[in-house]
Amino acid sequence: MSSVPLSAYLVLALILFCIGLYGALTKRNIVVVLICIELMLNAVNINLVAFAKYGAHPGVAGQIFALFTIAVAAAEAAVGLAVLMALYRNRKTVHIDEIDSMKH
């Protein structure tokens, strides 16, 4: 039985993580930065689920961790959006490079 090797999933997760990372570090719109972070979380989730099947100690624990991560990511997205709304109301901008009030 030949199946897709673990390393294929890990490399895919790596690529997605790198894409998300690059986007999070360079994108200007706060919303895009937020969804890039979601993408990075997803890449981690792939790892967790892949290890749940092909890891040294396979079991359902990996999947449960993925579920927890999704829950936290959802909470993070909700709070992030709320912060974004508050910021936008005060500063009238969604550009991350215009928000530098922590400079000094």
């Binding site: 990372l21 999070a24 570090l25 360079t26 930065v33 991350i96 490079d97 928000i99 530098d100 009030s101 922590m102 400079k103 000094h104």
Partner: peptide
């Protein structure tokens, strides 16, 4: 580098 922009900090850290 201390320009108050979170992405710069993030980039430098990374």
């Amino acid at each position: 580098m201390q320009n108050g922009q979170v992405q710069t900090y993030g980039a430098v850290t990374f």
